[in-house]
């Protein structure tokens, strides 16, 4: 099993834009990349997680301005169906060059949609930049609410940031309080569909990124294909990111590989368990 997918290079990086970093989850890679790509005309807009109706509820939006991209910074740790506005981005917003950010499963969906564009007329050849984010699992909005309000005892209205790291789920409030619970308490709230996922670092994205492997405030970045490399190199040359060789940072790719192996091994076991779930009856396996 290829745990980290194909990639051309891996680096530790962070945005050089202080405005992005002020509200980004880690190194501000996705936001800065899309802002750069938008300003350079590499994309006409990007599908990102905007603000939904309820506090901390994301909503997929087609961002066509720097302001919209900036206001979509940061991880919300609950489901944002970015693929759902893909057709709209081309047919209603008229984008010819679409940027999209997604979890590994969403990037899988994107690539499948490009190969089998059953109901996505004139969309599949307009994907200009697919940014993938590392993902161990995700939560429904209600699950996230339960974790933050019941377990962390933080009101969603005073929540400033949530984070998963170092084996804990963290909730930071606007007034500076920090609440943390062991990550294992959150496992039961995970979205069931995540338990059959066999991708941790968005193997099929042009560029994928996440905090794991790099120091606080930095992100690990995999540059995966020619398109990703081309755009990434231009952005670095334009001073959008500062980078460090991934070998020079702790904990480095070793930890990424460890977590990817853990996730995929666990979920392969789950698929085996599903195959013999009942008495002589199993649950469906989507992988063929």
């Amino acid at each position: 099993m290829d745990y980290l997918g194909k990639y051309k290079s891996a680096v530790a990086a962070r945005s050089t834009c202080s405005e992005v970093l002020a509200g980004s989850q880690d190194g501000g890679i996705v936001t800065s990349m899309f802002i750069y790509a938008l300003e350079e005309g590499i994309i006409d807009g990007a599908i990102v997680a905007g603000q939904g109706e309820k506090p901390w509820q994301p909503k997929p939006i087609v961002a066509t301005s720097v302001e919209e991209l900036l206001s979509s910074r940061g991880t919300r740790y609950n489901v944002c169906p970015n693929m759902s506005v893909l057709k709209e981005s081309v047919r209603k917003y008229g984008l010819d060059k679409v940027g999209i950010v997604g979890t590994p499963c969403q990037i899988q969906a994107l690539r499948k949609a490009q190969l089998y564009p059953v109901g996505l007329r004139d969309v599949c050849d307009k994907i200009a930049l697919a940014m993938g984010i590392f993902c161990m699992e995700n939560f429904s909005y209600q699950s996230m609410t339960q974790i933050v309000q019941d377990h962390c005892n933080v009101d969603l209205h005073s929540l400033k940031k949530t984070d998963i790291g170092k084996g804990k789920y963290w909730a930071y409030t606007n007034r500076g309080a920090v609440s943390q619970i062991p990550l294992k308490l959150t496992h039961k709230y995970e979205q069931p569909g995540c338990h059959v996922c066999l991708d941790y670092v968005a193997n099929l994205a042009d560029i994928s990124t996440g905090s794991v492997g790099s120091p606080d405030g930095w992100s690990t970045v995999f540059i995966r294909n020619n398109n990703g490399e081309n755009i990434w190199n231009k952005a670095v040359a334009a001073g959008i990111f500062e980078t460090k060789p991934i070998e020079s940072v702790k904990p480095g790719l070793e930890l990424v590989t460890k977590l990817a192996t853990e996730k995929i091994t666990k979920n392969q076991k789950e698929l085996e368990h599903r195959a013999t779930f009942g008495v002589g009856k199993g649950l469906r396996n989507p992988y063929i």
Binding site: V79, N82, Q106, G119
Partner: peptide
């Protein structure tokens, strides 16, 4: 098996699918 990506909603020709709570 659903992980809420929304591809079904994007693919529906008659907009019969909306994403509610993911």
């Amino acid at each position: 098996l659903c992980m809420g990506c929304g591809t079904c909603a994007a693919s529906c020709p008659v907009f019969a699918i909306t994403m509610e709570e993911g």
